[in-house]
């Protein structure tokens, strides 16, 4: 019994698999980005698929699973490091049912399934987030952090706060699916 979240039909492009991507989002290097389906990229989001590993051919830089949400003004940027003297970008993989709140910057290496990241967070380079994790609003996760499954992290630097309930997976799944169905075009444009 949640209210719909309306968007203007002219702003969003809907793909065959139900992804909804705002025309006001910056999708750099779209050929290197994979969206799993029913994933929403909000307005003002920046996804840097152009920052790819050096070398020939094309490579997946950022992949997102099904029922994800990249909030308004989020920045998704692949992590980078200098290894044996060579600077390189590394791919970022995001699972299914992952919501990223507005204004967050993400440079993680992997994010599991059923993960909720709050608003205005910074997820540092090469962070590994396991399944069923929640990161509270305004959390700063320093580079290389590992966040174990079923835990809540908050603060600056982000620290473990508590274990999440056993039914987190079901809860997040319902929430992300509901969010997708609440996200509806407003038909009457003038």
């Amino acid at each position: 019994m949640e209210p719909p979240i309306y968007y203007s039909r002219s702003e969003f492009i809907e793909t065959d698999t139900g992804n909804k991507v705002s025309r006001r989002a910056t999708i750099a290097g779209p050929q290197n980005i994979i969206l799993g389906g029913k994933t929403i990229i909000s307005s003002g989001a920046i996804i840097r698929g152009d920052l790819r590993r050096s070398g020939p051919g094309h490579a997946v830089v950022i992949s997102l699973g099904r029922y994800c949400l990249v909030g308004e003004g989020c920045v998704m940027r692949p992590p980078y490091k200098t290894y044996r003297g060579a600077f390189n970008y590394y791919p970022m993989k995001v699972g299914d049912h992952v919501h990223i709140g507005a204004g967050s910057v993400v440079e993680a290496a992997t994010i599991g399934n059923h993960v909720e990241i709050g608003k205005n967070c910074v997820i540092g380079k090469f962070t590994i987030i396991k399944d069923c994790v929640k990161v509270a609003d305004n959390t700063i996760i320093p580079p290389n952090t590992v966040i174990p499954a079923l835990s809540l992290f908050a603060g600056s630097p982000g620290r473990f706060v508590e274990d999440l309930p056993e039914s987190t997976q079901d809860m997040v799944e319902v929430h992300t699916k509901q969010h997708y169905s609440r996200f509806q075009p407003l038909d009457r444009e003038h």
Binding site: M1, E2, P3, P4, V174, K177, Q178, S181, R182, Q184, D187, R188
Partner: peptide, 13 residues
């Protein structure tokens, strides 16, 4: 299951 859930209180036009 929620796949095609249109379960909302939409305003009519």
């Amino acid at each position: 299951e929620y796949e095609d859930d249109e379960d909302m209180f939409a305003l009519d036009d």
